[in-house]
Design a protein around this nucleic acid. Structure first.
Length: 644
DNA sequence: TACCAGA
DNA sequence: TCTGGTACTATGAAG
DNA sequence: CTTCAT
């Protein structure tokens, strides 16, 4: 493989791969019309060991690209010709590949705003004719320039394919290969909100149909549940709003929660017709439901079985993020038991939402349809993660009474309202109006009620206003800065912080850049911290004036990253970890593990929608060590001068 | 959003 | 009692 | 001092 020619030759009449192919023993053959695709078997865990590579499981259309003398066909799983369906762009790019004949296996996808392939986005793009959104991820090469490659090993096929497709970020891409341990790759994929991974045996040959050389493992759990009741729709008189689900434990039927999404209106009506006829008076569950759980519920004979996809179990044994997938007519209700999967158990303490809202349907993010209630749900779910970053600190708040499209204003003083859970605090150094702080989830929910869409805390706490307990460096890319450069900047910042003995953590900003955050023991005062961060920012800019700038002058920022150290000053604030942003996309600032930094996670990758799913799938908090890693800041110069 | 002035 | 207008950071650096 | 940036 090292012998492979490294430069592409457009329209080469002989393939640059032919010589090496002959050595590797591929068979001469004519180009087949179609090869039935190789399929993966579903297992609950990915395979372990060095014999496997792993790829992301795409959520799109599996297609075979057949290239013959510049004529391209896109063939479905069953061999149907769908070339015309996706517009000319992908076809043109495939035509331009430097080959005479080839058969490429891949998946056509549309990525949603989070950069994750999304089947519903694909269907929307198809129906609206948005051809420019289609991407083709190639992952296998079955035939090339007169040779059948199916009997070569996967590694060899992939090497050739990678060489052919290249690493451009255009609509034709290579499906990335991961060589790490399968368990870790799956964990990583789940954190990213992906559906799962496909693991492939390195030495395997290409064989049509489902075999054991390709294994798929998924992030979300999926299993059958007994339908024990329903709640009628609040909008339609002849449809269900949600299903009440249970599992058997011996003879006892246990309640596991409701599912209110995943069905179309037609299916909701069909279920209503079926279930209406099955109603019973007494509850089928062994234990009574809590009053909120039992609200509006109509019980039915527990006979029907539904397939449900869900992200995990809560600590009180309820389903998280359940979605209806269909009825399982072939399954007997009495066989349905809880299929325990410890890794998917979400161990957060369940938080009850107590605050009552006015106008809970008020839309804050119109494009995403995130309402006040949706925002309250979000903060309730992330409470235990966001709490350390916003509790007991003076806050500046970005309020958007009409949602993100209306007027916005920053506020740090109280407005005239009776607060039950927000705290008014007096700045010991200023005799101005009191500032705002909060201590519990109810306080946060009062902010939601007041249309607070961004939360910007101080870097010091109410216990010690004058000594900050963290530093935040905001890396803000100017126009035309590639994302890789921002990642490199964050890593350089980390290295420089570590050189002076500080810990460094990274989070997305939810806007354009990354934030590098260092926990401090609250010993150094504001002026020292400010001087330290300014020195750091200036040093980075001085060492690399073409990449960094440490002053905020907008016109000088073209193609550079602005290192904003000014947040590290008394009274200055920066957006909190897990705070939402008042921007299109309902993005959120999310703490990451350094290893997660990649082109796959952009600055606004995580949203109100997918962040709770990430946290549910997360087995370890990437910032778990944040508080423990706090060290005392010493001035860089004094460290040097210091002696034992 | 929520307050308040003015109708 | 209803309606409509409007409220709302601090700071540093550059010019 | 004003303007512009976060």
């Amino acid at each position: 493989m090292a012998a492979l020619d490294t430069h592409h030759q457009k329209r080469a009449k002989a393939s640059p791969f032919l010589d090496s192919l002959a050595i590797q023993g591929a068979k001469k053959a004519s180009l087949p019309e179609f090869v039935e695709p190789m399929l993966a078997s579903l297992l609950t865990a990915p395979p372990a060991g060095k014999d496997w590579i792993h790829e992301i499981k795409f959520d799109g259309y599996r297609l075979q690209a057949r290239i013959e003398a510049g004529r391209v066909k896109l063939l479905t799983r069953r061999g149907l010709d769908w070339t015309q369906k996706f517009g000319p762009k992908i076809v043109t790019i495939l035509q331009a590949l430097p080959v005479e004949t080839a058969l490429i296996d891949g998946e056509l996808v549309v990525e949603n705003s989070s950069g994750v392939s999304d089947f519903s986005a694909l269907q929307a793009a198809l129906s609206e004719g948005q051809f420019d959104r289609f991407l083709f991820y190639a992952f296998d090469l079955l035939y090339l320039d007169g040779y059948d490659l199916c009997d070569l090993s996967l590694s060899k096929r992939r090497d050739m394919l990678e060489h052919l497709v290249g690493s451009d970020a255009g609509p034709l891409r290579m499906s990335q290969r991961f060589e790490e341990e399968g368990r870790l790759v799956l964990q990583h994929a789940c954190r990213l909100g992906l559906e799962g991974i496909i693991s492939k045996r390195k030495e395997s040959v290409y064989r049509s149909g489902r075999g054991k050389d390709w294994i798929k493992s998924k992030c979300s759990a999926r299993q059958e549940f007994v339908i024990a009741g329903y709640v009628p729709s609040s909008t339609s008189r002849k449809a269900i709003g949600s299903l009440v689900l249970g599992v058997y434990d011996g003879d006892r039927l246990d309640y596991v929660g409701r599912v209110g999404t995943g069905f179309t209106m037609a299916i909701a009506e069909d279920l209503f017709r079926k279930l209406e006829a099955m109603q019973i008076d007494k509850r089928p569950f062994a234990k009574p439901l809590a009053s909120a759980e039992a609200r509006h519920v109509r019980y039915v004979h527990p006979e029907l079985v539904a397939e449900i996809e869900f992200s995990g179990w809560t600590a009180d044994e309820r389903l998280r993020h359940a979605s209806f997938q269909g009825l399982r007519e072939d399954k007997d209700a009495r066989e349905v038991v809880r299929e325990g999967s410890r890794s998917l158990t979400f161990t957060a303490k369940p938080q009850r939402r107590r605050a009552v809202f006015t106008h809970s349907d008020r839309i804050y993010w119109p494009d995403e349809g995130v309402t006040k209630e949706g925002l309250a749900d979000y903060y309730t779910e992330v409470w235990r993660f966001i709490a350390p970053f916003i509790v007991g600190r003076p806050l500046a708040l970005l309020r958007c009474p009409d949602g993100i499209t209306g007027p916005q204003f920053f506020q740090k003083h109280a407005w005239k309202k009776v607060y039950s859970h927000l705290v008014l605090v007096n700045d010991p150094k200023e005799k101005s109006e009191p500032l705002l702080a909060l201590h519990d989830l109810d306080g946060l929910l009062e902010l939601v009620q007041s249309a607070v869409l961004e939360i910007h805390p101080w870097q010091s706490t109410l216990t010690d206003w004058e000594r900050p307990d963290r530093i935040i460096m905001d890396l803000d890319p100017g126009e035309g800065v590639p994302w890789e450069m921002v990642i490199a900047a964050a890593e350089e910042m980390r290295d420089r912080l570590q050189e002076v003995g500080l810990a460094a953590f990274v989070k997305t900003s939810g806007g354009k850049g990354l934030h590098v955050v260092s926990p401090l023991k609250p010993l150094a005062t504001w002026p020292m911290v400010k001087t330290f961060t300014k020195t750091l920012a200036d040093a980075m800019a001085a060492d690399n004036p073409d990449r960094f700038i440490s002053t905020s002058t907008k016109s000088k920022r073209q193609g550079k990253i602005f290192i904003d150290y000014l947040r590290n000053q008394r009274g200055m604030t920066a957006v909190a970890a897990y705070s939402t942003r008042a921007r299109p996309g309902a993005s959120v600032s999310v703490p990451l593990d350094w290893k997660e930094l990649s082109p796959n996670i952009g600055p606004a990758y995580f949203t109100v929608e997918n962040t709770p799913i990430r946290l549910a799938a997360l087995t370890g908090d990437p910032w778990a060590e944040f508080q423990a890693a706090a060290v005392a800041l010493e001035e860089p110069r004094s460290t040097r001068r210091r002696h034992g």
